[in-house]
Write a protein that binds this DNA or RNA. Structure first.
Lengths: 252, 252
DNA sequence: GCTTGACCTTGACGTAGCGTCAACTTCTAT
DNA sequence: ATAGAAGTTGACGCTACGTCAAGGTCAAGC
């Protein structure tokens, strides 16, 4: 010992890790032994030890092994670390949100409530679109709609969303099958969409401009686009086209 | 459609996940299809959909699949969530510490410093034992020791720690080989330990009580115990015994 | 010189939660 | 009848090692 060279166990103990980890670092090319005996034994020198300690230090900071290699071997040391710092901050924020959500959920459970998803169907939680609605149709319109929605029974809510879900699926299916937006079949679906929107507006019938404008929104707003495109890429644009044709033909 | 039963793709889209995930949940027993056709196709009903949505909700809170099963099926709903909340808080704290460390490291790098492990050998960063030293031997002793340590060259520091490392390894080896604490061989190692401590005290020779008391500390303080036991379970106690014998025989 | 035990090697599976082929069967629309 | 969409069951991949398993090597004691 003390001849400036150590076996795998010795260096592992000196640095506070395990021989398995050392072998792994050798496998992935992060830290090779300084010498390998004719019997296959790995030996490490002081340079290896220093590198190992740096590796372990960076590992404790939460960096992955490729990132560690980049920091230690790359020229631009700081870059990888800066990226990592941003990632850490995003992680912290995510966990903070989770803590808040779990706390809320726990309180609800203690109050006897059930665990429930916000909406029966994903993608049409209307409170999520509050700002857009107010901007387009005014605060009154939003509040009237909100009151109406909350007055519905759970079953009615579910059915209303199911209708939209079916409409979206049918639009996408027609699109996949190569129907054109002005075909009778697609226009029949657009008619169902018009009825659905009218129901959502508590019976007030959208004008041609309002209806085609709504279709345009489905393409412009990422959240709506995802809702429709989930059934097939390009579905949202197809829905917009179908709604525009419907507006011209049936609402003017 | 709308007959209260959906194919795997349909329910996946409705809930905002993938069919692969559904199959996985089936495999691990978290969510079975409500019906399986004679052709092997999986079908899900509304009850499945509700459960799926709860699963996805809990998943977003960061729970693992077994924990989700426990929350949804177990009687003690809250328990698993409460445990998870504690875990989340610990995670947040850990990430906060990492953020602080990475920030410090980045600043050092920008200042032109190298990434360096705190100490050449793990476990004997003396600043870590500041409180114990002050309590046992007074603030003056700590500050004298600290000044002395910082006056050493990097090479001297390394060598000093290497000496301790070798001593610990030799103690452990003797222990494994069944030597007794009062054997000549072990007492020779204890003598090296005495010289090492004396060097650390800047030449002031420990009394018998001080030396055996130090040995006792190695067993009482978890951090020291780990330092010695890393070379073998029970090594710390063996070192204490050897030091006690040495104190009686050589220092009285 | 032989045994024992510590230490070394390579190889391979397991972990969490699916993503992503691959190969094959079934359903649906034309 | 046929193409294309959608379904099925495998099986590998990913992170960073932990944890056997099977077998070779070395140092110490008889």
């Amino acid at each position: 010992m003390s001849i400036e060279e150590w076996s795998i166990q010795e260096i592992a103990r000196a640095a506070g890790t395990t021989s398995r980890t050392l072998r792994h670092y050798g496998d992935v090319g992060l830290l090779a032994p300084s010498r390998v005996g004719s019997n296959g034994y790995r030996y490490y020198d002081r340079q290896s030890l220093v590198r190992l300690q740096r590796i372990l230090l960076l590992r404790e900071l939460g960096l992955g092994l490729p990132a560690i290699a980049e920091v230690l071997d790359g020229e631009r040391d700081g870059a990888a670390l800066a990226v990592h710092l941003e990632w850490l901050k995003a992680e912290r924020d995510r966990i903070e949100r989770q803590i808040a959500s779990v706390t809320t959920t726990l309180r609800k459970l203690e109050g006897g409530e059930q665990i429930m998803a916000a909406e029966a169907f994903d993608g049409f939680d209307h409170t999520q679109y509050k700002d857009e609605v107010i901007e387009r149709w005014g605060r009154d319109a939003y509040e009237r709609g909100d009151r109406w929605w909350r007055s519905l029974s759970d079953e009615d809510k579910r059915e209303f969303q199911q209708r939209q879900h079916d409409i979206a699926a049918d639009f996408a299916k027609a699109y996949r099958q190569g129907r054109s937006a002005d075909s009778d079949e697609v226009q029949a679906i657009a008619n169902r969409q018009y009825d659905w929107v009218t129901a959502g507006w508590q019976g007030k019938r959208p004008t041609a401009d309002q209806f085609s404008g709504l279709g345009q929104l489905y393409v412009d707003d990422r959240r709506f686009t995802e809702h429709y495109d989930r059934h097939g890429e390009g579905a949202a644009a197809f829905v917009r086209d179908a709604m525009a044709v419907y507006a011209e033909r049936a609402l003017r």
